[in-house]
Design a protein around this nucleic acid. Sequence first.
DNA 1: GATGAATGAGCTTTCATTCAT
DNA 2: GATGAATGAAAGCTCATTCAT
Lengths: 191, 191, 191, 191
Amino acid sequence: MPDAGTNRRRADAARNIAALLDAASAAFVQAGVEAPVRDIAARAGVGVGTIYRHFPTRADLVVAVYRHQVDALAASADVLLGSATSPSAALDAWIDGFVDFLVTKHGLAGALRSGDPGLEALHAYFLDELVPACARILDAARTAGQTTTDVSAYQLMRAVGNLCIGAENDERYDARSVVALLLRGLRYAAP
Amino acid sequence: MPDAGTNRRRADAARNIAALLDAASAAFVQAGVEAPVRDIAARAGVGVGTIYRHFPTRADLVVAVYRHQVDALAASADVLLGSATSPSAALDAWIDGFVDFLVTKHGLAGALRSGDPGLEALHAYFLDELVPACARILDAARTAGQTTTDVSAYQLMRAVGNLCIGAENDERYDARSVVALLLRGLRYAAP
Amino acid sequence: MPDAGTNRRRADAARNIAALLDAASAAFVQAGVEAPVRDIAARAGVGVGTIYRHFPTRADLVVAVYRHQVDALAASADVLLGSATSPSAALDAWIDGFVDFLVTKHGLAGALRSGDPGLEALHAYFLDELVPACARILDAARTAGQTTTDVSAYQLMRAVGNLCIGAENDERYDARSVVALLLRGLRYAAP
Amino acid sequence: MPDAGTNRRRADAARNIAALLDAASAAFVQAGVEAPVRDIAARAGVGVGTIYRHFPTRADLVVAVYRHQVDALAASADVLLGSATSPSAALDAWIDGFVDFLVTKHGLAGALRSGDPGLEALHAYFLDELVPACARILDAARTAGQTTTDVSAYQLMRAVGNLCIGAENDERYDARSVVALLLRGLRYAAP
DNA sequence: GATGAATGAGCTTTCATTCAT
DNA sequence: GATGAATGAAAGCTCATTCAT
């Protein structure tokens, strides 16, 4: 049973972690997920060492920052399958949520594709969570005859993720339009 | 003949430039278009100063590396419109060539979206060359009633470009499949 | 007492800063105030980053190196006005101290005139501190009728500063002699 | 007896040298005597190699650029001694001409004191020419009882040269005023 | 003789990461 | 546990100088 000092310490650590996640989230929006470690530490009002203690690699930090939203998105798949008028509509809605997530988090989509080996773990986490969710909807749509595509859930997610890259800074490019095109193509896939 | 010396010298310089373009091309494949200047110089067996002499900015170098292929692609638009069985088929073929280009040049698609201001000139060059070419085919397809989409040539190219990002390192992701999906969606655009 | 760690750390940093100031001082003597950052760091046995941390610009470092002496010189003006037999004698003594300072710090006088924009701050600091001090003595001398010159304190300091340039490397040139000449001219200014 | 080709070549070379001196002179005014070799070559419309052929060291070039004026100044000493109303007036006039020279040639005074070993030859040339000239006037003044100073011609020239450093860029500093002060001090030197 | 392409040392600056306190 | 000073590898860029043509 931990004594009071330990509890105090743990409470402090928890507060630090929370501050860190907030700071990192803000920094990622403004400067991308490659934001300098120092900047994040400064925003959070902690030393850089504290970041390294709690999040040894950058990927650990990024994963932590987006974990909640990723989990919510994964969970929403089954909800949508239950509530939407059709599997196809559920897919549209779910992808819409995915685009929301990526477009809001400036630079996240790009970071996932940056090729930086240090971000591999991040990549893996996203895939592990989201691909199965997407696959469930896709299978339902296939079973319902609403698509004949053989494109995998993984491929679909990668495609949508890619389409969102750079969408924040470019007024002439609307990620949603082209994602809609892609989904239409999915519905009318070759017999 | 006073030009002899000049020409001879130019021949040497030309050889260096060629070596540089080869080296840069290789470096771009392995390390992306942000490959360190020093590394490129070393590969080419020249000093860094030589790079700066011929290509003052990184964009100059990247443009030079890809210029031929970009020009050829731009020129192929009209050829395809004349030879293909339909504007729609011409579009498919042209986009196919575009995908070829991007997938082969590892990291180029990503670089075009890196947001680095120093690569703006590069971005502009690609757009200036390719968007009009794409627009001509898209217009022909529209006139022929083979698509009703209002997606701009710019958006289409950006979308295809994005879909190609990271395709070379990922066995589970096939850019051509999803590009095909996108083009199918284009054909069956909302009435 | 939570400050212990902080203080201890500060003691270390202070030692580094001191080493840095010593090293910079020595480097300035040998290679001028434009001495390479690397060299200074090496002399001090620290990494270059440490210099940038404590002294973001070169001017910051130079100012720090000479701050004490500049401050002491500025403060000595009033002391001398109180203790010397006349304002004129005070001026002689103060200028003597100024020459001491400049001649000892090899290359400083030259650096102040190098025109390097990065050294502007340094220049400003020296002027802000010393010109008012000099002006007080000059005014006192004028009030006492010991000079009728209309040369400003700024001009006088610039002149003396210039006269000290290069004095340390030249056996045939004695800055004090010519400064004495200048001060004599000041006393016997045109009737 | 040189053949026509040789003459042609010599004529070309002479033209190049002239262009080079003009270009260097202009460059020195704008960027100081440390102006980049390339810039000077470009101004002159020649290759950098041509500069190195004719002026192996920077000092050679600087000396060549100012040789005419230095010679004229040296020669003017005896003229002034003959024409001026007194040796003292001749000294004033000669120093005035020296100041003219230094203040017009931006940065020259500073360059002479830069400590750059490559400029030693330059320094020597100036001294060899001008110190004897100055000494002749100074001796005459001494003989006429118009000064009792024991300051050497070398020291006087160095002092005046120093007083001119940086005078071009500083509205608050007037080299002539302080040079006048120095000369006044010279006249009223201690008995 | 002239050219200017090439070289590469040398400088500044940034930042991820470590570790003494 | 937390801190942030220190480190030093990396990278970009600039010229003075050489030398093949």
